[in-house]
């Protein structure tokens, strides 16, 4: 157990450093570069020409923009430790408060899609591994070429065109009807109805990759000696996979899922924009075009934080599942 604690402590330091470097990078890309390369002073974005100079200085001061950039960075990072993500240039409201309004929608959409994608991926991967070499398997592998070359946004657009505009089966925008039904059961049904298309987009895009990955992991494992032994013992193929193989396949799958998280956030931006889903992704896009730096920085920080945290949890899970890694 001590080994685990030591290992996890080491990983924690690693992850915190990653987070810090990501913060520096993000700050450099979003604040330093535009300022020095293009001379864009963010304080001009929310100034009204009616203001006097003192008024401008006051506003600059309120947002901490009167200080040099490195001091701003230090302040920014220190504020993050107290949970303060800053104030939106645009609405002047705390970024954290604005974020909380949008987070539930995104979490519901992404959570559902991630869970479903992994489940479907696992199921299909298992099926393919068991039927390896058959026509279904080869067909799926050939189809994966197509999947690798299909743009996410285009899938969303096609679904919208076919099911939204042509067949009119699903709504074109939003996450609930306006006004939503007052009955709670109907409300949930209405919400799900609105979520179908974005969910479908995210699942279709993600599921192929998982399936192929799990298939190849399983096949590698199936070639190992212990499986041959198990088979020799006369165990059923299904039993072998469930009892022996899945356990060994778990660690890489956990890592891949954790690593895929930033990708999910990216996917959310486009999907939420296409389906006008009121969530964090769309907010980030809007805030970017409005030059709302604190919001953009806040969202990026939160998504990096989430990624780092989930990677850390993955570390823990893997360490628990496979004690060997602690020695590395």
């Amino acid at each position: 157990m001590a080994g685990l604690a030591k290992y996890m402590a080491k990983r924690a330091i690693d992850r915190v450093m990653v987070l810090f470097v990501a913060l520096v990078l993000q700050f450099a890309l979003l604040r330093v570069l535009p300022y020095y390369v293009l001379g864009i002073d963010p304080s001009f974005f929310f100034m009204n020409p009616n203001l006097t100079n003192e008024q401008r200085e006051l506003i600059k001061k309120a947002f901490g923009l009167d200080e040099p950039l490195h001091a701003q960075f230090v302040k920014y990072v220190l504020a993050l430790f107290t949970g303060n993500l800053g104030y939106s240039f645009y609405t002047r409201r705390p970024v954290a408060a604005e974020l909380m309004e949008r987070l539930p929608n995104t979490v519901i959409l992404l959570g559902t899609s991630t869970v479903l994608t992994i489940l479907f991926g696992l199921a299909i991967g298992l099926m393919l591994a068991m039927k390896r070499g058959t026509k279904i398997d080869t067909a799926f592998i050939s189809a994966s070429v197509l999947l690798n070359s299909f743009p996410t946004f285009y899938l969303g657009l096609l679904l919208l065109l076919v099911f939204g505009f042509y067949l009119r089966l699903f709504p074109l925008a939003g996450s609930v009807s306006r006004p939503p039904p007052s009955d709670p059961v109907l409300y949930v049904a209405d919400f799900l109805w609105h979520m179908t298309l974005p969910l479908l987009t995210l699942i279709i895009v993600g599921v192929g990759g998982y399936a192929l990955l799990i298939r190849s992991l399983l096949i590698t494992q199936l070639g190992e000696d212990y499986i041959v032994t198990a088979r020799a013992k006369g165990l059923d193929e299904r039993e072998i996979i469930v009892k022996h193989v899945l356990r060994n396949v778990l660690p890489p799958v956990i890592t891949i899922v954790a690593l895929a998280l930033p990708g999910i956030v990216s996917g959310a931006v486009i999907t939420e924009t296409i389906f006008s889903w009121y969530g964090v992704g769309r907010w980030l896009f809007e805030a970017s075009t409005q030059f709302d730096y604190p919001v953009v920085q806040g969202v990026l920080f939160i998504s990096i934080l989430l990624t780092v945290m989930s990677l850390y949890i993955a570390d823990l899970l893997i360490a628990l599942a496979d004690p060997r890694v602690r020695l590395r």
Partner: peptide, 17 residues
């Protein structure tokens, strides 16, 4: 570290700014 950054959001922000 770079691998952990959410790519598209960052690209959006950078290309806008």
């Amino acid at each position: 570290t770079l691998m952990f950054l959410p790519l598209i959001p960052l690209l959006i922000a950078v290309s806008v700014f």
